[in-house]
Design a protein around this nucleic acid. Structure first.
Lengths: 214, 214, 214, 214
DNA sequence: AATGAATGAGGATTCATTCAT
DNA sequence: TATGAATGAATCCTCATTCAT
């Protein structure tokens, strides 16, 4: 989960400075995902990370920079998760389900990160970012999201409905986000059966009807 | 949208006392939907509403009370929107589409209220409310949401998939929330065709397959 | 206790305007004696007096003026109490005890006024007043206090100890103020026997010893 | 008067951390003794103490806590003053005069503390404390005040008048408080002769008459 | 004359940020 | 490098005072 490269590995047995930096990042994610940006004092982050308040300002220019870096890290990590084991040769439906499952798993296993991203996207800052398509500078900046690629491919072969991309993404991700949030909050318990059935339903939403439906 | 009755219409050209109260409520909805609770100082609300800071405290005990009242009002207004023209005798599919359309329309025409509710539900306070099922005391407190009724009825007649209620709601509302938020932010332009197609896709997600699909 | 002259008596059966004024004064005395000047909002006074907030400003320039007038009124009323039935021909001891009893009675029967004066005298404003000897402009401004007259007379006939006037006053009034405050607060119950015995003791403090004491 | 130990005296020329805390305490005593609790803004304390406003909240939870701590400190210091050099074997009269002198001296040399205690005892909070006998938790919490002990002993050997304890205390302390306050305010100048004579007069007030008096 | 809604200056408190050690 | 004490700007809220009705 740690995205930072630690290539200067072995020599001294001293304390890794990134350790402190990471603890600050982790504490921030956890606390902001729970209390929100304005509800999380820097001092609280420092205490939770087990460092002095001033120390945070050694690693980050200010609170904004800290949060922005987290967003970028988490956003990239999330995208990498989606690319993980992604096989282009598979049929559209399998690739779609695979991506959905990854999103589900990511949300369930990284609840703090998940809520953090949500919060960030809904904040004025996040909106700006989104509009400017600055989403992510990790790896290939301009590269389409995997989900977008799948939809594009599916549309071509008439497997996916001919809807605007944003609508397709909403149909695929909206329900998952909804469910994962409920699960994080503890309103429901997500078992595998429910997850699989929901993903299948998402597929029904975006796929082109093959039979006759009422 | 204004809940207060202003029956004493024409005669005097005097200032309506509810006017000020309403302006405070409207300003709060607008600002909090954009900047969040902690990101919106009372002074900002006052300025936006064109009143003195102290005036706000004549109408509301404190910031919390102001926000809570807004939530209750907006939540009730939203539910009433859903019940509007709701005809029980119609087939499940029509009722479902009708509800979806209402949600879409509500979000598009009341973007601030829409984001406000979203924010509120995702806040610690909203989560508590949700868990305690205190959602709304307007009209019938204990009554199920219309959408829940439709799903219940649809499950009985085997029209709706046999999924947990939370999952069905996520499949229906998740995409709409997603799209409406994108639309509010200005990332997409929602025309009728897209709305209708998306709703139809939502129906595909929750309905029981009648034909054969891969 | 009302010091205002109501000479324009009979004609109309309408509400006496001084009534309102008095209610404001009474409410202020009661509330300030309990909560202090800064602890008593004007709005609280208005509510307690049963008038509108703005009404208070019809009768008094501002809060300070209101309190100052009360001080002057109460101070005068208190002094008049001391002069009441005051008979110069009586022996020093009787006159002293008479005055002491009056102070006691005044404090017990006018607890709010009593505490109000205390508070006022101890406030920066009261101190200034005292230093400027502006105590009271009621009746004869320059006239000595009765107690001071008694002490002066007693010193001349060698009945009262030859101490500075301030010390004699402290010996006479200090204990009474102390006890009355305890009584107002409810820490003790002042019966006649205790009152009389205490006054007698006060006399012992200021009188010239006639017998031999250790 | 400073309760904090500053044993690590000379070596470093650095700022004593208790210094700031003490300056806040001293400023608060001074200002509140003059303007009262509600009449003394925290900002005024900060300015007077030469610290930032926020600094006060590093040392004290809030204004209440600050004042309460001062009361406890001052109250204990005052009591310790009274116990200082207190010799049980001395005759009642000497012990009484000794205590009176100590109170006098304390008031004269600690005028701010003296007025502060007065104010505190007369506030609603102080009254409650007094009623609950929580006066002080310094040293022996339940122990009687020295003055009370003297009075109890004096009553037994018929040296002190048979009056309620509250009355005896009023007779002893009332005049002193009165005089000291006048002295603090600058209305009189207390020389040793006056102090001694006044104390003797206080003794006359509480002692049992040995000769015949009129 | 009487009212109380409206106001904004001022008070308590918090918190991002700096800086001396 | 790491710290946390210190700070004051900014926040929520109160309240003396005004003024339109």
């Amino acid at each position: 989960m740690n995205v930072h490269s630690k290539t200067q590995a072995a020599p001294r047995q001293q304390i890794d400075p990134t350790d402190k930096r990471d603890r600050i990042l982790q504490a921030t994610i956890r606390l902001i995902s729970e209390y929100g940006f304005h509800g999380t004092p820097v001092s609280m982050i420092a205490k939770d990370a087990g460092v002095g308040t001033g120390t945070i300002y050694r690693y980050f220019k200010d609170k904004d920079a800290l949060v922005l870096e987290i967003f970028q890290q988490v956003n990239c990590a999330f995208k990498k998760t989606l690319l993980h084991e992604y096989v282009v040769s598979q049929p559209i439906r399998d690739r779609f389900l695979h991506l959905c499952r990854d999103i589900f798993q990511y949300g369930i296993h990284n609840p703090y990160e998940f809520k953090f991203i949500e919060q960030f996207y809904n904040s004025p800052y996040g909106t700006t970012l989104r509009r400017e398509k600055l989403f992510c500078n990790c790896g290939d900046p301009g590269q389409d999201l995997p989900l977008e690629q799948v939809f594009a491919a599916g549309k071509e072969q008439n497997t996916i409905k001919d809807l605007p991309l944003a609508a397709l993404i909403a149909l695929a991700i909206g329900p998952i986000v909804f469910l994962v949030k409920d699960s994080i909050v503890g309103l429901i318990q997500l078992d595998d059966a429910t997850i699989n059935a929901t993903m299948a339903a998402c597929w029904d939403a975006v796929k082109v009807e093959t039979g006759t439906s009422k």
